[in-house]
């Protein structure tokens, strides 16, 4: 369950952290009910500001992926089996659109995009 932060990257550290935590959940390495390390402990391990980790945890909370329980810390929500809610679907579509648009503009064909999506999917299901 490794978190890898690239400090020289253009992507903000809290976004990198959120993305990696989501990926760990998607791969099943983190499961519903698992508790994430405290903000202080993860910030110390990475040598980053506590606000950065805090921001990432709050972002995950607002997306409904974790809940922050007083005293127990950041707990991962059980994965949703009965389909995505309309609100979340809308957000995902909004976030996916510009990326697909950029891929088209940069020369990716529809087939390539579909192939990429399915290869990412199978990669995540594998583990």
């Amino acid at each position: 369950m490794l978190i890898q932060i690239e400090t020289s990257s253009d992507i903000p550290i809290y976004t990198q952290l959120s993305n990696q935590l989501i990926e760990l959940i998607a791969r099943g390495q983190l499961k519903g009910g698992d508790v994430l390390p405290s903000v202080r402990s993860l910030a110390s391990d990475l040598g980053v500001n506590m606000h950065t980790v805090n921001k990432s945890y709050h972002e995950l909370e607002s997306k409904g992926i974790i809940r922050i329980v007083p005293k127990s810390g950041a707990v991962i929500n059980p994965s949703i089996r009965d389909g995505i809610s309309d609100e979340h679907r809308l957000r995902i579509v909004e976030e996916l659109k510009p990326i697909i648009a950029e891929a088209i503009v940069l020369g990716m064909t529809a087939k390539e995009i579909q192939h990429l999506a399915s290869s990412i999917l199978s990669d995540m299901k594998e583990e």
Binding site: Q4, E6, T7, S8, L36
Partner: peptide, 12 residues
């Protein structure tokens, strides 16, 4: 080289 920092969630 890329500047990378690594933490293991299970370290502690």
């Amino acid at each position: 080289l890329k500047q990378v920092r690594i933490a293991d969630l299970a370290s502690h």
